[in-house]
Simulated scan of single mutants.
Amino acid sequence: MSIRDIIDGKKQWRAHVARVKMLPPDYRIVYGEIQRYLFKVGSIDLLTGLLEFFEESAASGRGVLEVTGTDVAAFADDLIEGSPTYA
């Protein structure tokens, strides 16, 4: 990995974080919890897709619990199903 790759990765991550900060507060909270979970199990590649899904859902006026259901942990488990993990 070169310095350029590291710099580009940081720029992409900062852009990602900026998009997360633009989500409504309830979406940010749920996204943060799922993000922490994904960091623990190693499926961080799913974060971009999750962010896009949350952005679309928020834009349509749906509440975050309408999207994930009341059991956010089960939603996160379903999200990583079939993905490679460290767990």
Rank of each mutant, 00 (worst) to 15 (best):
residue 48 T to Y: 09
residue 62 R to G: 01
residue 50 L to M: 08
residue 35 Q to I: 00
residue 29 I to Q: 11
residue 85 T to W: 06
residue 74 A to S: 13
residue 1 M to A: 14
residue 41 V to P: 00
residue 27 Y to V: 05
residue 39 F to L: 14
residue 17 V to D: 12
residue 58 A to W: 02
residue 47 L to D: 01
residue 26 D to Y: 03
residue 58 A to N: 02
residue 53 F to D: 10
residue 9 G to E: 08
residue 70 T to F: 13
residue 71 D to R: 11
residue 36 R to K: 10
residue 44 I to W: 00
residue 72 V to S: 04
residue 35 Q to R: 13
residue 49 G to F: 03
residue 36 R to T: 11
residue 20 V to K: 03
residue 74 A to P: 02
residue 36 R to E: 08
residue 29 I to H: 07
residue 31 Y to E: 00
residue 21 K to G: 01
residue 35 Q to E: 12
residue 74 A to E: 15
residue 69 G to Q: 07
residue 38 L to I: 05
residue 14 R to M: 11
residue 50 L to T: 04
residue 42 G to R: 00
residue 70 T to Y: 13
residue 86 Y to W: 15
residue 78 D to K: 14
residue 46 L to W: 00
residue 7 I to G: 00
residue 31 Y to N: 00
residue 68 T to S: 06
residue 83 S to Q: 14
residue 36 R to G: 13
residue 47 L to E: 01
residue 35 Q to C: 04
residue 71 D to F: 09
residue 40 K to I: 08
residue 55 E to W: 03
residue 85 T to Y: 05
residue 6 I to M: 11
residue 27 Y to K: 04
residue 55 E to D: 01
residue 40 K to W: 01
residue 14 R to F: 10
residue 28 R to F: 00
residue 32 G to N: 01
residue 15 A to V: 02
residue 19 R to Y: 02
residue 15 A to G: 09
residue 18 A to C: 04
residue 41 V to S: 02
residue 32 G to K: 04
residue 53 F to M: 10
residue 72 V to Y: 06
residue 49 G to I: 06
residue 57 S to Q: 13
residue 85 T to N: 06
residue 32 G to R: 05
residue 87 A to T: 13
residue 10 K to R: 15
residue 81 E to S: 13
residue 56 E to R: 15
residue 14 R to A: 14
residue 40 K to F: 05
residue 77 D to I: 12
residue 69 G to T: 10
residue 4 R to M: 07
residue 82 G to N: 08
residue 8 D to A: 13
residue 6 I to S: 11
residue 74 A to R: 15
residue 4 R to S: 10
residue 72 V to Q: 04
residue 63 G to A: 15
residue 57 S to H: 12
residue 33 E to M: 11
residue 11 K to L: 12
residue 13 W to E: 15
residue 60 S to E: 15
residue 86 Y to F: 14
residue 38 L to G: 03
residue 2 S to N: 11
residue 20 V to T: 05
residue 21 K to Q: 13
residue 24 P to E: 08
residue 79 L to D: 05
residue 53 F to C: 00
residue 80 I to G: 08
residue 44 I to H: 03
residue 47 L to W: 01
residue 8 D to H: 11
residue 77 D to G: 14
residue 27 Y to D: 04
residue 28 R to E: 09
residue 36 R to H: 08
residue 77 D to H: 14
residue 43 S to H: 07
residue 23 L to R: 08
residue 13 W to F: 14
residue 79 L to M: 12
residue 8 D to N: 13
residue 18 A to F: 08
residue 50 L to Y: 03
residue 58 A to E: 01
residue 37 Y to R: 08
residue 24 P to R: 04
